[in-house]
Design a binder for these strands. Sequence first.
DNA 1: AACAAGTGGGAATGCGCTTTCCCAATCAGG
DNA 2: CCTGATTGGGAAAGCGCATTCCCACTTGTT
Lengths: 362, 362
Amino acid sequence: MAASTLTEVARLAGVSPATASRVLNGSARKPGKDIAERVRQAADSLGYIPNAQAQGLAKSSSGLIGLIVHDIADPYFAAIARGVQEAAREQRRMVLLATTGGAPGEEKEAVAAFAARRADSIVIAGSRSSRAEDGDQNAELAAELDRYCRNGGQVAVVGHPVVGAAAPEGYHVVSVPNQELAAKLAVELAAGWDGDFVIIGGPEGLFTSDDRIRGFQEGLSRAGRGPAEVLRSSFNRSGGYDAGLKLAARIKAGGTGQSGRPAGNGLGIFAVNDVMAIGAAAALRTEGLRIPRDARIAGFDDIETLRDFRPALSTVSLPLEEIGRLATRATAPPTADGDEQDYAPLPVTGKVMLRRSTETAD
Amino acid sequence: MAASTLTEVARLAGVSPATASRVLNGSARKPGKDIAERVRQAADSLGYIPNAQAQGLAKSSSGLIGLIVHDIADPYFAAIARGVQEAAREQRRMVLLATTGGAPGEEKEAVAAFAARRADSIVIAGSRSSRAEDGDQNAELAAELDRYCRNGGQVAVVGHPVVGAAAPEGYHVVSVPNQELAAKLAVELAAGWDGDFVIIGGPEGLFTSDDRIRGFQEGLSRAGRGPAEVLRSSFNRSGGYDAGLKLAARIKAGGTGQSGRPAGNGLGIFAVNDVMAIGAAAALRTEGLRIPRDARIAGFDDIETLRDFRPALSTVSLPLEEIGRLATRATAPPTADGDEQDYAPLPVTGKVMLRRSTETAD
DNA sequence: AACAAGTGGGAATGCGCTTTCCCAATCAGG
DNA sequence: CCTGATTGGGAAAGCGCATTCCCACTTGTT
């Protein structure tokens, strides 16, 4: 028994498929009350479920929205995904998920796959990279997105625009003030701690990471401090852990900081995201160091699952879920009532959260 | 410029659409080398992307796999989702995401939506509930799934079968030995602690929760202990927190001295999942109690993000990602080479992890 | 009472693709 | 050199639905 079709329903109700279509799937023309009723009965006596593929083919639009993330198990992306999902539901659309590990090549393929499925819009949540080695693939990604938009697709990118993407109609950016917020964090941290700072960053070229590093340095300078040393490492917990081990060794050596000043009273560590910060903290702890006594540490994102971590992690709170919602809404088809989609970047704000992990002991 | 079609490609290459289709989209019949080359060139000079909807319609199969979870931002589901995503990629399929908050009504709708999109298979990750008030909707869910399977769909359920679902062909269950593992945990905990146990459970009727509670009680009895009291609360962090507050009060009431050290020697707490356990721990801490000194606490799932929590949480490690993969693979179309899909439940094993949070002080 | 405008339903077309089915050309064997 | 078996390409029929016409019929107007 194959799923029943509109035609079968129509036949059962004794009407034409056209009429059945009109009553079952919102059309401008509303058939007469009695007929409508008959069709509806026939439909659910048959357990009719419209074939979305056929519908999509017929009206060329699928009710699908594609979401691209690096890793759905990363709480950062998971939070954004929740927002996207929520907004999608509001718009009665479904979300198609693609994970790419951050490789632009994979992202390009994901875009193509979404295009193939005629997704109405695409939300790209992962941070883009500007590394030279990714240049070609980035270009391909941009080209693919471009084509997608030209064919009427809507795209929203979280954070940075895709490198080299022209900005055709339908291309939206939800920009996150990573740099500003990192600067603010630096300023506030510098106010409470006069030792050296070290930054644990992601691989060079990752926009999110680079912005946060740049912002932090800027904040330091604003506070009259010299630039902090930057340790590069992978953009996840184990990256943070590795960097943490190195720093632990340094702290225990009690040597001199990069500035040449004694680093006897520990270090101020800024990890470009919470997950890395937690990794670093774990490493320090493993090495017998205590936070914030031996090292103050701050992260970025304010991941919910990590809020119960002790000592409570200083960080920058970002409305991740809201960001997902905003991105999704930005791609919504123009609402009927004389709307005004603003194609300008949408405003997102964050908040510096100073907590236990950066308190000065005394 | 609308996306280009197969017909356009065919025309450019000077062949029939049939031939173009055969070379571009894997068909049994392979056209001649030279012609194939011409078609392929035409295709990518036009930037041709096959319309998956049309393909789906024509061969009635969509390359889609539907995933149903309660909340994608919950690390438990996120981990499973990662496994599903991974397996889907292996099979060159895409995943459609639906979140339901655990309501059977929503789940039924999600199944219908997947069916409408002609998803080849559905993976249901959320725990089902058997509460009376959900009875009707559960029945509807079961009916919907039944119909879906009868129409050739494959479904895999993680944990428990859907209540009332017959087991038609195409219905798979990845069973998780929640009860056994909880029993084992209880036995091991009881070996190291001779005080009272309390269980923080989810709402009554939630299978996962109930199984774990039952198992834990069973383990206690196996260890010669009486059954533990069960505190019901919501199946998330805040549920754990609330329960934690109550228990904190109780522990403190049990105490006399100003030392803060409760008389008696505290409580052994088992929360039915890690997230709840963390919530409970946070509550205890808020109330000035210390773990494991004033209360030993254990969770379930071994959520990765929570592994850096201190004191390290005793728990039961579950191969969440693997579970997602297994479920997805169970729904894979029979492989060509004389396969033998076993429709029997797949084996999943877990492991009791005793860590700091349940260590006895001395 | 006669005609224009409006209503409500059906026939037919097409969305983009896959897949029989059919036919011409090639091939092997005698 | 002829015949039956193959091969390789094209024509055409859907897949399930939305939608544009078109037509029969009911209303509303001088």
